[in-house]
Amino acid sequence: MSVAADKRRLILDAAVRVFARQGFHTCRVSDIADEAGVAYGLVYHYFPSKETILDTVFLERWNLMLATIADAQASEAPPREQLRRIASFIVDSYRRDPDVMKVIVVEVTRAANTFGRTHVQRIMQAYEGIAQIVAQAQKAGVFRREVDALFAAQAFYGLVEQVLTQWIFSGEEIPEAEFEHVKAEIVEMICGGLGG
């Protein structure tokens, strides 16, 4: 990585910690600079605003999720396994970096503000990708056809997000075994409800 890329990453990582600790709206760019151990002006050299930083944090992780959904769709795996891969990606993202997921859940996907509205198309892409998995399974007779595929996708993502929200606000360390348990429960609840 170049020096510029290293500095940019340093600032992004510091911003995630500050956003997670203080909340996006209550922190200042100077808080991010202090956390990163860089001059205030350097933050603006790489990012024109703290909004741009939040956008970058969200898009980095969300693009990885969209790629995971696309990979799951493209696989020859059964629909249950495809959904397990997606749930695993999201849960493991929290396991590896809870601050990033806290920022995404609290400040973007659940926020009824400009960030939620700005990224609604990107968020819908995830729902639509999951819905395609459900629709294919319905077409193949694996899942019941009576449930709307997009509704099932939103229920699936909503269930995962609700679990993350509970973890975020509990402030407790999650036991390792709980991560695997939750993945299995989410997939079972959705697939069981779809009859697959």
Rank of each mutant, 00 (worst) to 15 (best):
Q22S: 10
D148H: 06
R96Y: 08
V187E: 08
F24Y: 15
F47P: 04
T114A: 15
A135D: 15
C27D: 12
A14S: 09
A112Y: 08
G193T: 09
R21D: 13
A155F: 15
A140S: 15
F115R: 04
I90N: 05
F179C: 03
V147D: 00
E173A: 11
E51D: 15
F58Q: 11
F19M: 11
L83E: 00
A72K: 10
D92M: 05
I11K: 05
A131N: 03
S49M: 08
F179S: 00
F169A: 07
V105A: 10
H45C: 05
M189Q: 14
R28D: 13
V163I: 05
Q82A: 06
I133E: 11
F151N: 14
A33T: 01
F24K: 06
R8L: 01
A33M: 00
E81V: 09
R9E: 13
E176C: 01
K183C: 03
L12P: 00
D34Q: 11
R21A: 14
V163P: 01
K139M: 14
W62R: 13
K50E: 04
L10W: 03
F115N: 05
R85A: 12
K7N: 09
V142C: 09
V182I: 02
I133L: 14
F151L: 15
R117H: 14
H45G: 06
F58M: 09
P98D: 02
A67C: 07
D148R: 04
M189E: 09
P175E: 07
A74M: 12
A112K: 09
R80N: 07
R61L: 08
R95Q: 10
D99A: 13
R8E: 01
C27P: 02
I174R: 07
I104Y: 06
R84A: 11
P78E: 08
K139V: 15
G141I: 08
G158L: 03
L54E: 08
I11A: 04
T109I: 15
I11T: 02
P175H: 06
I69G: 04
H119M: 12
A135W: 10
R21L: 08
V106I: 14
E81G: 01
L159F: 08
V103I: 10
H119G: 09
V182Y: 01
T56A: 14
M1Y: 00
E128V: 00
W62V: 06
H119D: 12
A177T: 08
M101A: 08
G129Q: 05
P78Y: 04
Q138E: 14
E35M: 13
E76D: 15
K102E: 13
A4L: 02
A67W: 09
L159K: 12
M124C: 09
L150W: 06
E178C: 03
V38E: 04
